[in-house]
Amino acid sequence: MQKVSFSSFHPFFIAAVLLFVFCFSACSVSSENISSASDFKSVHGKVVTQSLRRSAVFTGQEVRIENFSMCSHEVTQKEYEEFCAYNGAQPKDQFGKEEDFPVYFVSFYDALVYCNRRSIKEGLSPCYKIKNSSNPDDWGSVPKTNVDDVEWNSVECDFSADGYRLPTEEEWEYAARGGEKLLLEKFSGSYDVFEVAWFNENTSGASEPVKQKTPNALGLYDMSGNVQELCWLKQGKAVIRGGSFDSQEDSCAVYATGSVPVSARIKDTGFRVVRNRIF
Rank of each mutant, 00 (worst) to 15 (best):
V57S: 09
D149T: 11
A175I: 06
D192C: 04
S188P: 10
Y114K: 03
K41V: 01
V147F: 08
K211A: 15
K144G: 12
K129T: 14
W198S: 04
D110V: 06
K267M: 13
S204D: 11
M70H: 07
K211H: 06
K267I: 12
G258K: 12
S107L: 01
V227G: 03
I278N: 12
C231K: 03
G243K: 14
I34A: 11
N153T: 09
C71L: 04
I266G: 00
Q50C: 04
L218K: 05
R177W: 07
F279C: 06
E81N: 06
K213F: 12
Y104H: 15
T49W: 05
A176G: 12
G270F: 03
F20I: 15
E151K: 07
L19R: 05
I130K: 04
N202W: 02
P215H: 10
P126E: 00
E173H: 10
N116K: 01
N226I: 05
S263F: 03
A176E: 07
R272P: 00
E151I: 08
T269M: 05
P167K: 13
R241A: 12
D100K: 02
K234G: 03
Q228W: 10
L220V: 10
A89V: 06
G163F: 00
L220R: 09
D148K: 04
V63Y: 05
T214W: 05
S160G: 04
S119Q: 03
M70T: 11
D138I: 03
Y221W: 12
K186L: 08
V155W: 01
V63H: 07
S8K: 01
V150I: 13
G219M: 10
S263Y: 00
E62P: 09
N87T: 13
G60K: 10
A175M: 09
E156C: 03
I34K: 03
W172L: 11
E62F: 04
D93T: 03
A176L: 11
M1N: 15
D162W: 01
D268H: 14
S35F: 10
V106S: 00
E99Y: 00
G96C: 03
K234W: 08
C157P: 03
T49E: 15
N276T: 12
